[in-house]
């Protein structure tokens, strides 16, 4: 069986990638499962999708625990735990990255024992979320790595899956996908089907025994206010709003009123401050600031550790 997992951010087309690859396998005569991990599949949020394909009936269910190939559309996901990109990877697994950095750098930094490759020349790397065809490109790369999907089949799968988006979008995607498929010829068959582990090979799940509780205790009631602050939604951000305090007029805090996230507070001197732990990077504040005191920069080049907010 082939087990392939796609990691990206909401809006990058990881679900589409899994569908294209799944359809391509299917057209080649495989049994296929493809699915997106349900959850907060919001734009910018870390998400993943996966594909299983086999010549035999597939008995495995649920999310892929031991991937043969993991394709990552946005390398900032590697820096944080939450998306679980490396989860279940073994020395036999392969990691394929959309990154400006060298694969070797990632291999060392992640201390990963398997092989690491980079997608070739995916346009001149702007923001990963602005690479319009990255989902299709990831699917094409996956098709190449498994080596059992022909160019013709890949083309058909892309057409089938993207058809409703109209001709022009299909054509653009085909061009990018087939280019990458051709460039990666040397990787054909790098991924070999792995066997399905027997039940006994699976580690026992980490069960926790829960005593039967009275309904008042076991009901899902929350007894504290504003607990959502524990969720670091700043991870969703691909673009970062930055306030230039020299230009800020401390106006009546237009930015603080409009920010849907409540990520802009106003300090005692009347200056707005952005909470980077939670700001999702919609940039609506930047658009609305009447004094153009907010600019955006690529999150890509920042490390998340520096998210302390600006002191003024």
């Amino acid at each position: 069986m082939y087990r392939i997992r796609f990691h990206g951010r909401g809006g990058q087309g990881m679900k589409t990638a899994s569908r294209i690859l799944g359809t391509a396998f299917f057209l080649e005569g495989f049994e296929v499962q493809d699915a997106q991990r349900y959850g907060a599949e919001r734009r910018g949020a870390p998400i993943f999708a996966y594909v299983r394909a086999s010549r035999e009936p597939i008995k495995e269910r649920g999310i892929i625990q031991r991937p043969d190939l993991v394709i990552v559309a946005d390398d900032t996901l590697l820096l944080i735990d939450a998306p679980g990109v490396l989860k279940g990877m073994t020395p036999q697994s392969v990691l394929l990255l959309n990154s400006e950095e060298e694969p070797k750098m990632w291999k060392d930094r992640l201390n990963f024992s398997g092989a690491v490759f980079a997608l070739p020349d995916v346009q001149d790397l702007k923001e990963p979320t602005e690479q319009l065809h990255i989902g299709t490109v990831c699917a094409a790369a996956g098709a190449r790595f498994v080596g059992v999907i022909s160019q013709k089949t890949l083309k058909q799968a892309i057409q089938d899956e993207l058809d409703i988006l109209g001709n022009q979008i299909v054509e653009e995607n085909l061009e990018q996908a087939l280019r990458v498929y051709d460039l990666m010829e040397a990787y054909a068959g790098k991924i070999k089907p792995s066997s399905e582990p027997a039940v006994a090979d699976y580690p026992d799940p980490a069960w926790i025994e829960m005593p039967y509780e009275d309904a008042r205790i076991s009901a899902p009631a929350i007894h504290a206010a504003a607990t959502s602050l524990k969720n670091p939604t700043g991870l969703w951000r691909t673009l970062r709003p930055v306030i230039d305090y020299d230009r800020c007029h401390r106006c009546s805090s237009i930015c603080s009123t409009f920010c849907p996230e409540n990520a802009i507070s106003v300090n005692e001197n009347g200056y707005p401050q952005i909470d980077y732990q939670h700001c999702k990077g919609c940039l609506l504040c930047m658009e609305q600031c009447p004094h153009h005191a907010i600019e955006s920069s690529l999150e890509h080049t920042k490390t998340l550790e520096s998210d302390k907010g600006d002191e003024i």
């Binding site: 504003a226 959502s228 805090s253 996230e261 409540n262 106003v266 990077g281 609506l284």
Partner: peptide, 26 residues
């Protein structure tokens, strides 16, 4: 009377799963 009269100490906390830039949340 003006935007200055609106509170800047907001009650609704951050950290929800709502899309970035949601007009409903605003």
């Amino acid at each position: 009377k003006s935007l200055k009269n609106l509170s800047t100490d907001h009650l609704l906390a951050s950290g929800t799963a709502i899309c970035a830039g949601c007009g409903g949340l605003e």
